[in-house]
Write a protein that binds this DNA or RNA. Structure first.
Length: 109
RNA sequence: CGAGCGGACUACGCGGUCGCGGCGUGCUUUUGCGCACGAUGAGGAAAGUCCGGGCAUCGCAGGGCAGGACGCCUGAUAACGUCAGGUGAAGGUGACUUCAAGGAAAGUGCAACAGAAAUAGACCGCCCGUCCCUCUUUUGACCCUUUUUUUCGCAGGGGUCCCGAAAAAGAUUGCGUAGCAAGAUUUUUUGGGAAGAGGAGAAGCAAUCGAACGAAACGCGCUCUUUGCGUGAGCGAAGAGCGGAACGUGAGAUUUGCUUCGACGAGGCAAGGAUGGAAAGGCGAGGUAAGAGCUCACCGACGGGACGGUAACGCCCCGUGCCAUGUAAACCCCGUCCGAUGCAAGUUUGGGACCUUUUCACACAGGGUUGCCCGCCCGAGAAGGUCCGUGAAUAACGCUGGAGCCUUUCGGUGACGGAAGGCGUAGAUAAAUGACCGCGCUCGACAGAACCCGGCUUAUAGGUCCGCUCGUAUC
RNA sequence: GCGGGUGUAGUUCAAUGGUAGAACACUAGCCUUCCAAGCUGGUCGCGUGGGUUCAAUUCCCAUCACCCGCU
């Protein structure tokens, strides 16, 4: 991915502590302005076995990559909600809705 | 055609656009960051982490104890608790399946309840002997031998007189044709060697009285039927019918009616006794006072020998003091094996300066080596603190070419091994396979590598192939 | 990834291979004018599946769920 991965424990705890949380029906987004664009996905053991967790992570990354070219530099953490079914279209729609509402997009796609 | 058994394989496919991981080549760039192209990128279980090994480190690779694992035989393998072939046992009509399958006369422990009794005995019982009182009936008296017997037993065997019964012979007598009846006596066979009733006494059942407790009818009593227990008098349970208006349980006491039992023996036996998972081999016959592998036949168990097999074991013959329950997935014994820690192992970049405490270079003491002991090693470090520096849960290596995979062929029943040829086949580190479109169908299960292999176990929608068994029908 | 541990009543726990127990909770009755407290009684069971054994919560194996440690 072109955007940098958010890796350090320090950065993630800082994000949790002082980032802004935005909620949608399918997921939660935490973001904080920074020098370059970084993102991370948070999928713990409560979401199911490893096959199910990997599928959630793939869907979230694919959905987020639709907007990477238009985003202003900031750190983003994506946390999905626990549910029975996950779909790519719902993730794309909700992420777009949130980013538009928080005016993070530099120009509309 | 139906029902089933065993084995092997597969795990949606094809095409297009965008995107992800590492790799190679090229371009750019001081490096880094990038760009383009190319090929490549999750499994049969990647899972559980239940075993075994490689690999790495630890002054392990010396001994003993402790601890752990395994347990029919032979083989395969780097090794195994795995696999293959066989043996035995159990199950199934069969194909076939399952089995931690050494030792219970080395020792210790445990076996509830039930049952007379639970690893050992004699409660009931069967038999024998001795001994109280009264009465009734009754034929008893001797000799030889230790020959019999596994044992216990006064108890074995033989003979004479006596008594009873049966059979045969038969002098003689009566009636008399035949024949029938009686019958002294003789011979042979067999039996007999005491039996029974009552009393005293003991134990119990029912009725009666009754302290105390409960109770107002779904209760109580009586009769009948069925059934259970007891040797019995009797006591319960269930059902049906009837009864009158009051009782039921009951420590204890007295009388009446009824039932059963002779007592004893440091006697014999273990056949029978509703139990139990298991009752001192099973069953039948002989034998005995009663009994018993006491004897015999068959079956089983154990021991010995011959034969077959590498062996487990099989099969045949002979013998027997039948000496003895189950449990070792209870302790344990015997045999075999095991050093510990796990890639978060470990190696490198990567440290420097100072202070304090402690041990030691003979010994003691200290540290390490496996939980413990002995033994061995360490011989200058070990522990703690402060300051400087620093990217530090970081970076690189370990990291994927390995007991590797495929094909052919040879050896072997097989697991497997040998040879030849070919292939290059994920390597991430907040951790890569997704989204959309089109076509096809049976509409797609379980599920995601994290050092690597060999196994086991568990999860799994379907589909394909091979071999085999049983049943039915037809030929 | 590696190494350990635990599953018993609604809850917290106990147990020698032989009928599974205690406390609290729940519930019915008594007591009280009523409630609480107290007294008397009752209900609720060994994570799952196999095996060893006459008999398994206990012993063995597998499996499921949960917890802890290593950094």
């Amino acid at each position: 991915m072109r955007c940098l991965r958010l890796k350090k424990q320090k950065e993630i705890t800082a994000l949790h502590r002082s980032g802004k949380r935005v909620y949608a029906s399918s997921l939660t987004v935490i973001y904080l302005p920074s020098d370059c664009l970084k993102m991370a996905v948070c999928v713990g053991k409560k979401y199911g076995k490893s096959v199910r967790r990997n599928r959630i992570k793939r869907l979230l990354r694919a959905a987020f990559s639709q907007y990477t070219d238009f985003l202003s530099p900031c750190s983003v953490l994506l946390i999905p909600r626990v549910s029975e079914e996950y779909s790519y279209a719902v993730f794309v729609r909700d992420i777009g809705k949130i980013l538009e509402r928080e005016r993070l997009l530099e120009h509309t796609p």
